Simulated assay, not measured.
Amino acid sequence: MPKMTFVERDGTRREVDAPLGLSVLEVAHKHGIDLEGACEGSLACSTCHVVIDPEWFDKLNAPSEDEEDMLDLAFGLEETSRLGCQIVIDETLDGLVVKLPAGTRNAQG
């Protein structure tokens, strides 16, 4: 089974199992990682904002226009920011490293 690492807000690194077909958001919830996901992956908020380790960023599919629009609302946006609900685990992402941002902004209406 693929693995991924979450770097929590305090810098703690947690390696977890990342089942194929689950999103980064779903993997976080499965393991009790503090990643909100207020809209439950429907691309209506930015609360599942994560920062992808630069080594991994170019291995991901490009974000959709809708994801980019939501990312514009994210707190603490960085060059390698993505929404966790839009990254689905496959074999190529075994070892993926993502960092939780310092905070979130829920602009869901």
Score class of each variant (00 low, 15 high):
32 G>F: 08
70 M>Q: 09
78 E>M: 14
67 E>F: 02
85 C>L: 04
91 E>P: 08
102 A>H: 14
13 R>S: 10
41 G>M: 09
91 E>Q: 13
33 I>N: 02
1 M>V: 00
30 K>L: 15
6 F>T: 03
95 G>A: 08
71 L>A: 03
64 S>V: 06
109 G>Q: 13
97 V>C: 07
91 E>D: 15
38 A>P: 01
14 R>L: 09
41 G>F: 06
103 G>N: 15
63 P>S: 05
21 G>I: 00
72 D>N: 14
109 G>R: 14
57 F>Q: 01
12 T>W: 12
2 P>E: 01
97 V>G: 08
36 E>K: 12
83 L>C: 06
57 F>M: 04
53 D>M: 08
14 R>E: 05
33 I>G: 01
30 K>E: 04
8 E>K: 13
17 D>M: 07
28 A>W: 05
75 F>E: 12
97 V>E: 12
82 R>T: 03
11 G>H: 06
50 V>G: 04
12 T>R: 15
59 K>L: 14
91 E>I: 00
95 G>C: 08
34 D>F: 05
44 A>P: 00
10 D>A: 07
56 W>F: 11
105 R>I: 09
94 D>R: 10
18 A>R: 00
50 V>E: 01
20 L>F: 10
28 A>T: 04
15 E>H: 04
35 L>D: 04
50 V>I: 15
25 L>N: 03
51 V>N: 13
42 S>M: 13
50 V>R: 03
104 T>P: 12
22 L>V: 00
35 L>F: 11
106 N>E: 12
33 I>E: 01
38 A>R: 09
16 V>G: 03
42 S>A: 14
28 A>D: 02
24 V>F: 05
62 A>N: 11
60 L>H: 04
7 V>R: 07
59 K>M: 12
48 C>S: 08
1 M>T: 00
92 T>G: 13
84 G>W: 02
21 G>K: 06
31 H>G: 02
50 V>P: 03
92 T>N: 15
105 R>K: 13
95 G>D: 01
18 A>G: 04
4 M>F: 04
103 G>M: 10
68 E>V: 12
76 G>Q: 14
65 E>W: 07
56 W>P: 00
4 M>T: 06
16 V>S: 02
32 G>I: 15
89 I>W: 03
100 L>Q: 03
100 L>M: 06
